[in-house]
Computed example of a mutant assay.
Amino acid sequence: MSAPAEPMVTVSLRKKEAEAISYGIADVLCWVNGFNAARDGTDLETGPLGTKELRDMNIKLKDALDKADAQTKEPQK
C-alpha cells in the first residue's frame, strides 16, 4: 500500500508581489554566493543554511510568473 499523497499548499500573490519576492530572493542568493566565495580560506566551516530551498522556491515563483504571462498573452475566446 502506498503512502497517501502529501497535501498541496497554495499561496496567492499579485503578479507584482511575486516579481518583487523573486527579485529579492535572487538578490539574497547573489549575496550568499559572494559570502561563500569570501569565506574560502577562513575558519568558517559552513555558509548560510536554506539556500537550496530558497533557490527551489524562486524557480517555482518564476515558473508561476511565466504561466501568468502566457495566460495574459493568449487570445480571448
Rank of each mutant, 00 (worst) to 15 (best):
M1W: 13
M1V: 06
S2W: 09
S2I: 05
A3N: 09
A3Q: 06
A3L: 11
P4S: 12
P4H: 03
A5I: 08
E6Q: 14
E6T: 05
M8A: 15
M8Y: 04
M8Q: 12
V9Q: 15
T10H: 15
S12A: 10
R14L: 08
R14K: 06
R14S: 00
K15A: 15
K15G: 10
K16A: 01
K16E: 07
A18R: 09
A18D: 14
E19S: 02
A20I: 07
A20V: 08
I21T: 08
S22F: 04
S22T: 06
Y23T: 05
G24I: 05
G24F: 08
G24H: 11
G24L: 02
I25M: 08
I25H: 05
A26L: 00
D27E: 11
V28K: 02
V28Y: 11
V28F: 12
L29E: 11
L29W: 04
C30G: 12
C30Y: 13
W31A: 13
V32S: 04
V32Y: 14
V32I: 13
V32G: 02
N33K: 08
N33G: 04
G34I: 03
G34M: 09
F35T: 14
F35L: 13
N36Q: 15
N36E: 12
A37N: 12
A37R: 13
A38W: 10
A38T: 09
A38P: 08
D40Q: 12
D40I: 10
G41C: 14
G41Y: 04
G41R: 10
T42E: 15
D43N: 00
D43T: 09
L44M: 10
L44A: 01
E45Y: 13
T46D: 03
T46Q: 09
T46E: 09
T46M: 05
G47V: 01
P48C: 11
P48S: 11
L49D: 06
T51N: 13
K52S: 05
E53Q: 08
E53H: 03
L54G: 04
L54D: 08
R55P: 07
R55G: 10
D56M: 15
D56C: 15
D56R: 15
M57H: 08
N58R: 08
I59A: 15
K60Y: 03
L61Q: 07
L61C: 01
L61V: 01
K62N: 11
K62T: 07
K62W: 12
K62C: 08
D63P: 00
A64P: 01
L65G: 02
L65R: 00
D66L: 10
K67M: 11
K67G: 11
K67V: 11
K67I: 06
A68D: 09
A70Y: 10
A70W: 08
A70C: 01
Q71H: 09
T72G: 00
E74F: 05
P75R: 00
Q76H: 10
Q76P: 05
K77Q: 00
